[in-house]
Design a protein around this nucleic acid. Structure first.
Lengths: 193, 193
DNA sequence: CTCATATTATACCAATCAGTATATTTTGAT
DNA sequence: ATCAAAATATACTGATTGGTATAATATGAG
């Protein structure tokens, strides 16, 4: 069966992801999307359904990539403390380097859509919960290796690190002084004992 | 000089604030605004300039009200620890009570507009910095009264509490389990020694 | 080669967007 | 009473929105 698609579906979805990530749902038009995806309007609708379905596909792709990225970063060092420090510091470094700080696509969606659309409320919540599970596993590894104290409340600490990550990510978008975020990261990391 | 305005400018601005707060800048139309403000379209433009100016006026009103509210809450108890606990717990209570959680208008604006508009980057950053100053003053009061340890790093702690407040406020919009936020609030508050 | 099918490109749709022109009405000062 | 100034209500603007109809093109199966 017949004529094949001339564009790469995943590459087009990547482009859509980047744009939704940067501009949000409402501020991104179909014309913006087709321009950056390099496809015609009917191709977008035939391939991805409609604007909301495309957004959902882009967000799902993002959360998968993001979870893998976080997991990889946390496994890159034997020291768990060091791993978390690197995670936060690289996040900060990235945001100050880029011209326009896109932040986290999932967090942006929590703020813009979660309160008005149950589908995105669930999707974004589950991603944050998943991150806290990754954090828990990492902390447990640190306890087993003897690096961390065995009486740590792993669950509470992991959830607090998620809250802190969200707080830092959002605050970075307003470009606060570097020392502001550095100081709070230091204090938060001091909870990992 | 002549015919007087038939509507209350401040009440109309309040209504605009509520709507922008709930739906954000892009998703709120002028028609939505005139409907809820109870005024005609030309009255809106004559009184507030244009959509962006109205948004800015609404946000400025919000940040003023919000700062006063936070200051009042923190002064309501003699115990500083208790005051911060109440602040976080009332925030959580409010968000679970309301049907649609609007979160914090300033945080919503950081996410939606700060990266694309320097005016809002500055305005929102200054509000968050101001909150951290209020927190610092409160912590200093606690040290003076003998409630808190005198060797506390007040600045770092205040900034961390701002980060935590942002993180909690955002996460609440995805309606996580109550225990998730409760656990992290407990751990964060444990930093106030 | 032929035909069914899917993709493409162009052009279009009604609805809504932010913002305004116009004309009417209200008001206080003279 | 008259007139200038400001607020009102209605109706409109051109541009843009999300989404499609149509027709041309490409492709594998028979």
């Amino acid at each position: 069966m017949v004529r094949q698609r001339e564009f790469d579906k995943e590459k087009a979805l990547d482009k859509a992801m980047e744009l939704f990530w940067e501009k949000g749902y409402a501020a991104t038009s179909i014309s913006d999307l087709t321009a950056i995806m390099g496809i015609q309007r009917p191709s977008l609708y035939a391939t991805f359904g409609d604007k909301e379905k495309l957004f959902e596909a882009a967000l799902r792709k993002y959360t998968n990539l993001h979870a893998s990225l976080i997991r990889t970063k946390l496994q890159s060092t034997t020291s768990v403390k060091e791993a978390f420090r690197n995670l936060f510091e690289e996040l900060i470094e990235e945001e100050y380097k880029n011209k326009v700080s896109k932040g986290c696509f999932c967090i942006n969606t929590i703020v813009e859509l979660a309160p008005h659309d149950e589908k995105f409320e669930i999707l974004t919540r589950e991603h944050e919960m998943y991150l806290s599970v990754i954090f828990q596993e990492t902390l447990l590894k640190g306890i087993k290796s003897g690096e961390l104290e065995s009486n740590l409340d792993v669950k509470a600490l992991a959830q607090t690190l998620v809250v802190a990550l969200i707080g830092i990510t959002v605050l970075l978008k307003s470009l606060p002084e570097r020392s502001f975020v550095d100081k709070s990261v230091n204090l938060i990391l001091s909870l990992i004992k």
